[in-house]
């Protein structure tokens, strides 16, 4: 397995979050292993924080803790 196939970019996470959560816009920073994502999505409105974070975790499934070593999340429903 090449290092390139393993490498995770903040852009990839941003694209996948935005594709996976309707109407989401994400700002993702990270070093290839640890990432920080701030996600705004109208879909979060009325949901508990737990439910909002689960929605984001569900985008990545088993990759969390593996290929994506750590992902910090802040969610907001937006205006």
């Amino acid at each position: 397995m090449s290092a390139a196939a393993d490498f995770v970019s903040p852009e990839e996470l941003k694209d996948r979050i935005e594709a996976g959560i309707p109407g989401a816009s994400a700002a993702v920073t990270g070093d290839g292993h640890h990432f920080n994502a701030i996600i705004t999505a109208p879909a979060f409105r009325g949901m508990s924080r737990i439910a909002q974070h689960r929605m984001v975790y569900d985008v990545f499934g088993a990759e969390l803790g593996g290929r994506i070593h750590a992902l910090s999340i802040q969610t907001q429903p937006g205006e």
């Binding site: 924080r49 737990i50 975790y57 499934g61 969390l64 750590a70 999340i73």
Partner: peptide, 25 residues
């Protein structure tokens, strides 16, 4: 818990969240 990451904080039997949620709260 249907929660993929560690740590996990439970209060009165309910999952409160992980580090991010605990920090925000």
């Amino acid at each position: 818990s249907n929660w993929p990451t560690i740590p996990q904080l439970f209060v009165n039997g309910e999952l409160v969240g992980g580090c991010d949620i605990v920090t925000e709260m």
